[in-house]
């Protein structure tokens, strides 16, 4: 039963959807605070390369090294995000331009590859990859086992984060303040909320989550550094936030759907079901386009949760 093709497709959906979810959840927080971050791809790559470095250089037992690598991956993403926050919140630059330049600056042909060269991370194998964990033999249960419990610690962590994020955003006072900063920074400012602080914290938090997403690519999917390994995952993550209507739970589902699409073609091929490979490879991106077209439609935008102040710099003097 566990070799059923549907089970396998769903299991790979969770496996390949997890890094998308981390990056998308990060972007979700950032956008909820009113900052648009198009630098996700660059932040993921910086997180990925730093995590590989950490995995190769930190001494200690395997689980300790893995935890440190995840932390350092998150830290690297957060650092780049701090730069983005500085540009967008303090300097009030155009957020689209700032984000794009960060993706170019830190991305596949930029800083992440430069560090990969300087640290010489690619020529060595990763000694402590993040491998699949079978909690209490749960992976052997029929159907749900291989789908949900044949995964790495990051996947289990992502579920905890998903629940916490929903509670944080919609059930706490700070979450309410965060949303108000994204909706109307002027109002939030008037009631005494520090808009700049909220934006800084959530942009940096977003970068850290993107960094963990990148770590998943370089320590789990392929425990080896490859320049530009995320291959556009950062852009899918940004689209996922819109796809999930700025809600963590829906974003998680979307991430799994996109994850499943990524390996669907090969899974079918290996079972002699021939479908044009190029079309299937392009599917996640075509889906992204379709989703964006649909949600841009007039009927949808009334129901969307788009933070009203998204992409607009807050200038107190201009009130």
């Amino acid at each position: 039963m566990n070799n059923n093709i549907l089970v396998i497709i769903l299991a790979s959906g969770v496996f390949y959807g997890t890094p998308l979810f981390f990056a998308a959840l990060g972007e979700l927080f950032t956008e909820r605070s009113g900052v648009l971050n198009l630098g996700v791809e660059g932040m993921m790559l910086m997180g990925g390369v730093s995590a590989v470095w950490a995995s190769q250089h930190i001494p200690g037992t395997s689980w300790f090294v893995v935890l440190c690598s995840i932390f350092i991956g998150a830290f690297a993403g957060a650092l780049v995000a701090a730069l983005h926050a500085f540009l967008c919140v303090t300097l009030r630059t155009n957020q689209t331009v700032a984000g794009l330049s960060i993706t170019i600056f830190a991305g596949a042909l930029g800083l992440s590859s430069y560090f990969a060269n300087v640290w010489d991370v690619a020529s060595k194998t990763v000694q402590h990859p993040i491998r699949i964990l079978n909690p209490g033999g749960l992976a052997d249960t029929p159907i749900v086992g291989p789908i949900f419990f044949h995964q790495t610690i990051l996947t289990y962590l992502s579920w905890v984060l998903c629940v916490l994020s929903v509670v944080y955003l919609f059930r706490t006072r700070t979450g309410l303040k965060l949303r108000s900063v994204g909706e109307s920074p002027q109002t939030a400012d008037a009631v005494g909320i520090n808009v700049a602080k909220y934006r800084y914290i959530h942009t940096i938090l977003g970068g850290a989550l993107a960094g963990i997403g990148g770590t998943y690519y370089s320590l789990t999917i392929v425990p080896q550094w490859v320049d530009g390994v995320t291959k556009g995952a950062g852009w899918i993550a940004i689209a996922l936030v819109i796809f999930g209507f700025w809600r963590p739970d829906l974003t998680l589902l979307g991430a799994y759907l996109f994850g499943a699409l990524q390996s669907l073609g090969l899974t079918l091929k290996a079972r002699n079901i021939e479908i044009n490979g190029s079309i299937l490879d392009a599917m996640p991106f075509i889906m992204t386009v379709v989703v964006l077209v649909i949600v841009s439609g007039g009927w949808a935008h009334k129901r969307l949760q788009t933070p009203a102040a998204l992409g607009i710099a807050f200038e107190r003097e201009e009130r």
Binding site: L36, L38, G232, I238, A239, A282, L292, S296, H301, I312
Partner: peptide
């Protein structure tokens, strides 16, 4: 909404670039 469309356009463009590179 205008700003949202702008974001959508940028992301769409990026997605198309990657789709084109994929095949």
């Amino acid at each position: 909404m205008k700003k949202f469309l702008k974001i959508a356009t940028v992301v769409t463009a990026a997605a198309l670039i990657f789709a084109a590179c994929g095949g």
